[in-house]
C-alpha cells in the first residue's frame, strides 16, 4: 500500500473513532473501548477487503462479516455509515427508542449487518454456518468474524473452532481483538485465554499474530488468509483498548460506559487534532 493509501485509511479510522464517541456519547452508554481497539480493522474490512455493495446490502454473493463481539456495534455502525450503508447523522440515534441502530447488531434493522449478535460466543458459530453454506452452495464469498479476547472464554467458541477445522472452512477468517482487557479487568487475571495463537493452531487454524493498528499488517494478514487452503485462518491482533483517546487507552473502565460532556469534548479534541495532523492541515 502506498503512503497516500495508508494515510487515507488512517483518516477513515480516525473518523470511525469519532463516530464511536459521538454515538455512545449521544446514547449516554455503549461500548467505546473495544470499538476503538478494532477501528482499523473495521475500516480496512469495509474500505478495502469486503466485497460488498452499500446500495445492495443483501446482495447474495457479498462477503459476510459477523461481529461476534456484538457489543462493539458502535465501531461497526460507524464504519458502515462512513462506507455509505446509512446516513452518518443517524449514528447519534444509537440505542434510542425508535432507532434502527440497536444496542447490539440487528441484521434486519441495520443495513449492512449480516448477523444479529450480542451474546458472546455465538457469532463465530453463525459465521461457520455461513461459510459452510457458501461452500455447499458453490459460492465464492468469504466470511469474516471478529471476536473479543474475553469472548474466547466462552466454550462455544472452541466448539466453533473445532467445527471450522473439521469442515475445512478455508473461506472463513476468524479475527481476535486481543486488547487484553475485559469488563472485570485484565483478561489474564479474570480467566486467562493465553496462549491464544497456539490454542487456535492446535484447533486446526493457520494463525498469524499482528499489530491490529497497523494497516500494512492487516493487509498482509488478510491477503495471506486467502492463500491458505483446506483450513480456516485466524488473525490474532494485538490492540489497545480505547485506542487514540488518552484517558481511555488501556483502561478497562471504558469497556462499557460513555463519556460525560467534558470527557467527550476532550476526546473529540484529541481525535480532531489527530485528524488535522493526518490531513496535513
Amino acid at each position: 500500500m502506498t503512503e497516500q493509501q495508508r494515510k487515507e485509511l488512517q483518516v477513515l479510522a480516525c473518523k470511525v473513532r469519532m463516530g464511536i464517541l459521538q454515538s455512545t456519547n449521544a446514547a449516554k452508554c455503549g461500548h467505546p473501548g473495544g470499538s476503538m481497539s478494532a477501528a482499523e480493522l473495521f475500516t480496512y474490512l469495509y474500505f478495502r477487503e469486503l466485497n460488498v455493495d452499500p446500495k445492495n446490502p443483501k446482495w447474495e454473493d457479498r462477503d459476510r462479516f459477523v461481529l461476534s463481539k456484538g457489543h462493539t456495534a458502535p465501531g461497526l455502525y460507524s464504519a458502515l455509515a462512513l462506507r455509505g450503508f446509512f446516513p452518518w447523522e443517524d449514528l447519534t440515534s444509537l440505542r434510542k427508542v425508535g432507532s434502527y441502530l440497536q444496542g447490539h447488531p440487528n441484521m434486519h434493522t441495520v443495513p449492512g449487518v449480516d448477523m444479529s449478535t450480542g451474546s458472546l460466543g455465538q457469532g463465530i458459530s453463525c459465521a461457520c454456518g455461513m461459510a459452510l453454506g457458501g461452500k455447499a452452495a458453490g459460492k465464492d464469498y468469504r466470511v469474516y468474524t471478529l471476536l473479543g479476547d474475553g469472548e474466547i472464554q466462552e466454550g462455544q467458541v472452541w466448539e466453533a473452532c473445532m467445527f471450522a477445522a473439521h469442515y475445512k472452512l478455508d473461506n472463513l477468517c476468524v479475527i481476535v481483538d486481543n486488547n487484553g482487557l475485559q469488563i472485570d479487568g485484565n483478561i489474564a487475571d479474570v480467566m486467562s485465554p493465553y496462549p491464544i495463537d497456539s490454542k487456535l493452531s492446535a484447533f486446526g487454524f493457520a494463525v498469524t499474530v499482528i499489530d491490529g493498528h497497523d494497516f500494512d499488517a492487516i493487509e498482509a494478514a488478510l491477503a495471506k488468509a486467502k492463500t491458505v487452503k483446506g483450513k480456516p485462518f485466524a488473525i490474532v491482533m494485538r490492540t489497545v483498548k480505547g485506542k487514540d483517546v488518552s484517558f481511555m487507552e488501556n483502561n478497562a473502565g471504558w469497556h462499557g460506559k460513555a463519556t460525560n460532556a467534558a470527557e467527550f469534548e476532550q476526546a473529540m479534541a484529541e481525535l480532531t487534532a489527530k485528524l488535522s495532523e493526518l490531513e496535513g492541515k
Binding site: 458459530s125 454456518g129 455447499a136 452452495a137 466453533a160
Partner: peptide, 15 residues
C-alpha cells in the same frame, strides 16, 4: 450450542 448457531448461519445462506 455450536450446532444451533451454525444452523442460523446456514439459513442466512439460503438453506
Amino acid at each position: 450450542a455450536d450446532m444451533m448457531c451454525v444452523a442460523a448461519g446456514l439459513s442466512t445462506a439460503g438453506f
